[in-house]
């Protein structure tokens, strides 16, 4: 009984069941190259999902992070191209900072004017995307223009194996970055007062204020971290696909939000874990990946993702309502 009340365990069981099922239909699923590429696909969505997790625990919702990711990525890559700069650390720091600043804007508007996060982030998303295209440019930065250093980052593997036919494949080093960040967020959420303030705010903002949390600070932490993670993930994405497209990530909000909800976070706030989110992201990416392996048209992926989001919201809403009785 105790075992099943833990949402993370339930999600893990669902994941295992899905993996067994998919493996039966399609044995190619279990081959190492597929597993490695699956893990790699987790990184960008996963980093963004960690940010959205924070926001959902605080009782909010964010649809602007993809726009922030694009802004950070495109701005940094274009600047690097223009300056002919070929570093790694400074660009990533810049992308993270741009994301955090844009997140600060969200936090300010939401907290100061007591506005609904959905509306605010819809607005800021549109503004930021428009500004990027209008002020910075609309053309892709292709592989032949991309800074070498970024491409190197994207290609770095921690494990490289050889196939029977002599070609090699590897496990992206980015997975390590993802795991380190996930563990950090987990520790912040569970072991620090600022992390607990996010849960408290999501559970009852008024009560959080009454016990003495500085809720403005909580909101800034939540939205800035989400923005920073999006900015970082944006640049990482571009270095992994060797392309900077200012129209990238359209519609990805839905996938990320679906993954977080799938991971057991409550749309009503106050509930959610890093472990659940990481598992939720894995389930979502795995199902999308399997649809491709099964040769199903990519347009149908949208149907599947939308359906999964609705089911996951319904199930968590049921759970949360039951808990209220």
């Amino acid at each position: 009984m105790k075992l099943f009340s833990n949402t993370d365990v339930v999600i893990a069981l669902i994941l295992v069941a899905a993996m067994v099922f998919i493996g039966l239909i399609n044995p190619a699923f279990w081959q190492l190259p597929n597993i490695f590429s699956l893990l790699k696909s987790n990184v960008v969505i996963g980093l963004m999902a960690l940010g959205v997790l924070l926001i959902m625990i605080s009782g909010g919702i964010d649809v602007s992070f993809t726009a922030f990711a694009v802004a950070a990525m495109y701005l940094v890559v274009r600047t690097m191209v223009a300056l002919d700069f070929d570093g790694v650390i400074i660009p990533f720091l810049c992308a993270t900072a741009i994301g955090a600043l844009l997140g600060l804007m969200n936090a300010g508007i939401i907290h100061k004017f007591h506005m609904i996060p959905l509306i605010v982030t819809l607005g800021t998303a549109s503004v930021v995307r428009g500004l990027v295209l209008g002020l910075v440019g609309t053309s892709n930065v292709n592989i032949n223009q991309m800074p070498e250093a970024l491409i190197e980052v994207g290609r770095a593997n921690i494990v490289t194996l050889e196939r029977a036919n002599g070609t090699t494949f590897g496990l992206s080093a980015m997975i390590v970055v993802y795991i380190v960040i996930a563990i950090s967020i987990h520790l912040i959420l569970t072991r620090t007062m600022i992390g607990r303030s996010v849960y408290a705010y999501g559970a009852d903002p008024e009560a959080a204020k009454r016990v003495g949390f500085k809720t403005g600070r909580t909101m800034i932490f939540v939205y800035c971290t989400a923005g920073a993670l999006a900015g970082f993930a944006g640049l990482l994405h571009s270095s992994m696909i060797w392309l900077a497209n200012p129209r990238d990530f359209v519609g990805l909000e839905l996938d990320v939000i679906a993954a977080v909800v799938l991971g057991g976070a409550s749309i009503f706030g106050g509930r959610g874990t890093v472990m659940g989110t990481v598992l939720g992201v894995f389930i979502l990416v795995m199902i999308q990946n399997s649809l491709i392996l099964m040769g199903i048209d990519t347009t149908w992926q949208r149907v599947v993702v939308g359906g999964m989001l609705i089911c996951a919201v319904a199930v968590t809403a049921l759970r949360d309502r039951r808990a209220l009785v």
């Binding site: 072991r191 007062m193 600022i194 408290a200 559970a203 009560a207 003495g212």
Partner: peptide, 28 residues
């Protein structure tokens, strides 16, 4: 009552005190 419904009893009890002591880290 101003409690946090989704949080555990133990946390509802100690949050107040930790805040007053200006703790940064939660010693569960």
């Amino acid at each position: 009552l101003s409690l946090f419904p989704t949080l555990k009893v133990v946390e509802n009890l100690f949050l107040n005190t930790f805040l007053r002591e200006r703790q940064k880290i939660v010693n569960w």
